[in-house]
Computed example of a mutant assay.
Amino acid sequence: MTIKLPDVIAIYFAADKSDNAQAISECFTPDAIVIDEGNTYTGRDAIRQWMANASTQYSYSVEPFALSEADGRTVVTSHLVGNFPGSPVDLRYLFLLDGDRIAALEIVP
């Protein structure tokens, strides 16, 4: 199923697919926050490092398949398959957008 993602979210997933941590970090506002697996990453440098670590620790693919809105956030549900514990899994990516950048992202089951 193909869904139409907001531009910056589409760029985020394309950069993730190509393991480009720098491009991912540039999708965010300078003081953005990411919450993933109980950890919080604040600012582009921390977000870039988070993605760089994730892409070296695990091999995975992510395929967004549903899009909705909840509490002012854009919710993208994606199917992840890889060599990480619990694979495969569907995760919800809760994006808070600020103009053409991501101000916050929380990734939850």
Rank of each mutant, 00 (worst) to 15 (best):
D31S: 07
D31H: 12
D31I: 06
D31N: 14
A32R: 03
A32I: 10
A32Q: 15
I33N: 15
I33C: 15
V34M: 10
I35P: 02
I35C: 04
D36M: 00
D36N: 04
E37T: 13
E37Q: 13
E37D: 15
G38S: 08
N39A: 11
T40M: 15
T40H: 12
Y41R: 11
Y41T: 02
T42E: 12
T42G: 01
T42K: 11
G43S: 06
D45T: 04
D45R: 01
D45S: 07
A46R: 04
I47Y: 07
I47T: 09
R48N: 11
R48S: 06
Q49S: 13
W50M: 12
M51L: 08
M51T: 12
A52T: 10
N53D: 14
A54K: 02
A54D: 09
T56C: 07
Q57E: 14
Q57D: 05
Y58Q: 09
S59Q: 13
Y60K: 02
S61E: 13
V62R: 11
V62I: 13
V62L: 10
E63R: 08
E63V: 08
E63H: 07
P64N: 00
F65A: 01
A66Y: 05
A66E: 13
L67C: 03
S68Q: 09
S68T: 02
E69H: 04
E69R: 05
D71V: 03
G72N: 06
G72M: 05
G72L: 04
V75R: 08
V75N: 08
V76F: 05
V76K: 06
V76S: 03
V76W: 10
S78W: 09
S78T: 11
S78H: 05
S78R: 08
L80M: 14
L80V: 07
V81F: 05
G82E: 03
F84R: 00
G86D: 12
G86H: 11
S87T: 09
S87P: 10
S87R: 07
P88V: 00
P88E: 01
